[in-house]
Amino acid sequence: MSLGNENDGFDGMGGTGQTRTRLPDTADPYAPPRRPARTSRSLITVVGVVVLLIAAIAFANRGDDGKDDSADTPSASTTAASGTKPVAGKNGGIASGFARDEQGAQSAAANYAVALVSADILMPDQRDGIVRKLFVPDKVGELEASLDKAYSAEFLSKLGLDNNGKAAAGLTYVSRTAPVGTKVTQFTDTAATVEVWCTGAFGTAGVSSTNPVTSDWFTMTLKLRWTGDWKVESFSQKEGPAPVNTDRTASDADAIAKAVEEFGGFTYAR
Rank of each mutant, 00 (worst) to 15 (best):
N7G: 08
N7A: 10
T16H: 03
Q18P: 11
T26L: 13
A27T: 15
A31H: 05
P32T: 00
P32I: 01
P33C: 03
P36D: 10
S40Y: 00
S42Y: 12
L43S: 13
T45A: 14
V46D: 07
V49L: 07
V51A: 06
A56C: 11
I57G: 15
F59Q: 02
N61D: 05
D68A: 00
D68W: 10
D69C: 00
S70W: 00
A71F: 10
D72W: 01
T73V: 11
T73N: 09
P74Y: 00
T78R: 04
T84E: 08
P86R: 07
V87W: 01
A88F: 06
A88T: 15
G92D: 04
F98G: 08
E102N: 11
Q103R: 14
Q106Y: 00
A108P: 12
A108E: 02
A109K: 06
A110V: 07
V114L: 00
A115P: 14
L116H: 03
V117F: 01
A119E: 07
D120G: 08
R127I: 01
V131S: 06
D138C: 14
D138F: 15
K139Y: 10
V140Y: 01
E142C: 12
L143G: 05
A145M: 10
A145T: 08
L147N: 11
A150G: 02
S152P: 08
F155S: 13
L156N: 13
S157H: 06
G160E: 00
D162Y: 00
N163Y: 01
N163C: 00
N163A: 15
N164E: 15
G165C: 08
G165E: 01
A178G: 06
T182K: 07
T185N: 12
F187M: 14
T190K: 14
A191S: 15
A191W: 06
A191H: 12
A191F: 10
E195I: 05
V196Y: 04
W197A: 15
T199L: 05
G203C: 10
G203P: 09
S208Q: 04
T210Y: 00
N211L: 07
V213F: 00
D216A: 14
W217S: 09
F218D: 01
M220K: 02
K223G: 11
R225I: 02
R225T: 15
R225S: 15
W226Y: 07
K231L: 14
F235E: 04
K238N: 09
E239T: 14
G240M: 02
T246I: 08
T246G: 13
D247A: 14
D247H: 04
T249N: 10
S251K: 09
D252S: 08
A253I: 04
I256Y: 07
A257H: 11
V260D: 12
E261G: 12
E261Y: 11
F263Q: 08
T267F: 07
Y268D: 04
